[in-house]
Every structure is written in structure tokens, then in C-alpha cells.
Write a protein that binds this DNA or RNA. Structure first.
Lengths: 189, 189
DNA sequence: GGTTGAATTGAACGGTCGTTCAGTGACAAT
DNA sequence: ATTGTCACTGAACGACCGTTCAATTCAACC
């Protein structure tokens, strides 16, 4: 059910998808869905909450690389692009359907998002302190870099002009430069 | 009518707003709306089309500054942030409601968007040719910079910690750095 | 073979949806 | 005073919405 809802919500939007459509996608009657979800709102929340929890858990599972903040920023950028590229539908929903959450559900998701952003902010702070990164404002740089990285999802399609790895390299380069990394250089190839 | 629809679509989403709500917002019955729009879909398209046309027209109206591509890139970044900050609702709709457009309407909007992106791409190309900008890939840099700049709208609120001008300065700095501008430096203040 | 229990159906509930249209009423021109 | 114009109402249309629930199905156990 969650897979079907994810796919349909991502394609048509939460408000435009009916419980009957979700049911039909999995070959069942609408009433049967209510054995597995309290209502439509909970279904949306579960998808978004699951996505954000998975994001934070996956980040916590990565082994932070040895080295300076530049290395850790690169690590974050690569992690972000890879994780998001692998879950295009969930990412899309998580960014587009926030307004369809009830107030308390929204607060939960918003908190998870803030926690993720704080991870990047911490790296920038450390870089600033170490002197290897130069950002004019930690908070703005955090928002700007995440917007830039997440933007990959809006246009990237597997099998296009550039491979996933190449796109990753190019974005890492731009992220490092934007953060004023002391040893930033354009990737060749 | 367009103002009311803009406000409600931005707040609740196209699919979640009924013609009756729009009508009630302007103190009229739902049927009266059909004197001014063929249907709900046309109303959405008119809003998005008007926004994109205004964007391209406003850009065409700016006087491109004398100087190198770095100066022109800065000019573009400042224009983009200012134009979008002044029209938060329309920008939000233009990015969120694309999937609610019919196929032919979508193609029209998509073409306008491509034309706007081409303006930035041209500046990056010139900078690359002049040797004052260093971007690993013109197309990717275009998407990355626009995503970064448009991202301002997701969090910026007048009266917050930073003024509009200050935010503009900071983003310009990050854009120039990300584009490998030869003379990029962190703004002070 | 009979009984239980869970999974699922299919119809129904009260609403809301986008859209249409005959009718109303105000106002300008004759 | 009559006519014509135009904006608008208010009711109606058929369709679909999220959700509930008595009835049914069906496999597993005694």
C-alpha cells in the first residue's frame, strides 16, 4: 500500500489522489485500506516520516571520514545526492506535500528536517573554525547548499548526458567552491 | 479573481482549492467566475503563464551592466532574488503546480522556463570564454545556481534576522564562488 | 465437518467537486 | 416607459470524495 501511495502521490499530488485509486493500484477495494491506515492523512504522514527517519538513520550510519571539514563537506554532499537520487518519489513528496499535513504532523516533519540541516551546519561551522571553509553566514549557506543539492532531483534522469557519478563530482565541486573551500578545484574529465 | 486564486492556490494547492472558495474570497457566487475564465485549469495556466511572461519581460527590461561576465552574473543573481522575493506566491505556484497543467499548457510553461534558464547559461558561457568564470558544466551549473537562488523563497521572510539586501549580498557571494569567479571574496558586514 | 477469526467486499453515508444555465436585477440607451 | 445589455445568482447536474460497516469469503484449526 505504501508503495502504491508513494508512486501516486508523487505523480499526481496528495490532494488529487483518491483512496479508491490507491486501492485499485494494488488490486483491492477502498475499504480494505483502512485495515492498514487510520486515514488518508496518516498515510501521507507515514510516508514522509519514514523518509525523514530513513534519511537521518542513513546519515548516522555513514562513517565520517578522517580529515578536515572540507573532506566532511564533500562526504555530506555525496551522501545527500546519492540518498536523494535513490528515492526521487519520496523526496518529491517530502518537499511538496508539507502543506497537506495536519499541524502536529507538520511539526514532527519540520523537526526532522531541522535536525538534518543541523548536520550540514555543524560541518560548515567546523570548517569556519578550522579556517578551511569561508561562508558568509552559516544558516544561509546551509539552506543554499541543500537547495542546490536537492535541486539535482528536479532534472536528473538516469541514462542522460551525464552519469550519476559525474553529476555527483560536478556538484561536489560547486558545493566546495560555494563554501569557499581552500583547496577547491574544477574536476577534469 | 486572479489575486484571490493566486493567494489560495499558493496556500492550499491547486487541487485543494475549490471554485466556490475562490468565489467566496472575492464575495461572489461560483458561477460568476465562469464569466472570466473558461475553467479552473485555464485559471491556473493564466497565473503561471503571466508569471513567466512577466519574469522574462522584466529581465529583458533590465539594462545589462558594462563589464565582464562576473558583473553580469552578479546582475542576474540580484535580479533573480529581487524578482522572486517580490512574488512569493506566484513563484511557489509556478514550481509546485506544474503537474496540474494539461500537457499542452505544461509545454508552454516549460518552454518559458527554458528560455529563462538560457539567459543564465549564456552568461556562464561568456564567462567561461572570457576566462573569468570556471564552471565544470554549463548546464549543471545553470540548474544548480537557479535552484540555490530560488531556494531563498522557501525560508526568507521580511523582518527576520537578515535584511533583504544582506541576504542578496550573501547569495551573490556564494553564486560567484560556485561559478569559480576569479575575483570572488566574502562580503564583510 | 463444523467453528472460529481475520481479510476483504460492496454498498451506502453525507459531502463537496467543477460546471451549466434559466432567471433576476440594476443600469444605460432610446 | 420601454427596451436591451450585462453581471450575477442560486439551484441543479452527475460525478467523485473519505470513511464506515454489515455481510461475505476463505483458510486454519478442532
Amino acid at each position: 500500500m505504501r508503495d502504491a501511495a508513494l508512486k501516486l502521490f508523487a505523480r499526481d499530488g496528495y490532494a488529487a489522489v483518491s483512496m479508491r485509486q490507491i486501492a485499485s493500484e494494488i488490486g483491492v477495494q477502498a475499504g480494505a485500506l483502512y485495515l492498514y491506515t487510520a486515514d488518508k492523512q496518516s498515510l501521507l504522514f507515514d510516508l514522509m516520516n519514514g523518509h525523514m527517519e530513513a534519511l537521518l538513520a542513513a546519515w548516522a550510519d555513514t562513517v565520517p571520514p578522517q580529515g578536515d571539514a572540507i573532506t566532511r563537506l564533500e562526504h555530506f554532499a555525496r551522501f545527500h545526492i546519492r540518498f536523494h537520487a535513490a528515492r526521487a518519489d519520496a523526496v518529491f513528496i517530502a518537499y511538496m506535500e508539507l502543506r497537506n499535513l495536519s499541524d502536529e504532523n507538520f511539526a514532527v516533519i519540520e523537526d526532522l528536517r531541522r535536525r538534518y540541516e543541523a548536520e550540514l551546519a555543524r560541518i560548515l561551522e567546523q570548517g569556519q573554525a578550522e579556517g578551511c571553509l569561508t561562508v558568509p553566514d552559516i544558516k544561509l549557506a546551509t539552506m543554499a547548499l541543500i537547495a542546490m543539492l536537492t535541486g539535482v532531483n528536479t532534472w536528473f534522469r538516469e541514462g542522460g548526458r551525464l552519469s550519476r557519478d559525474r553529476v555527483e563530482d560536478i556538484y561536489v565541486d560547486m558545493v566546495l567552491k560555494a563554501a569557499g573551500a581552500a583547496r577547491a578545484g574544477t574536476p577534469t574529465g
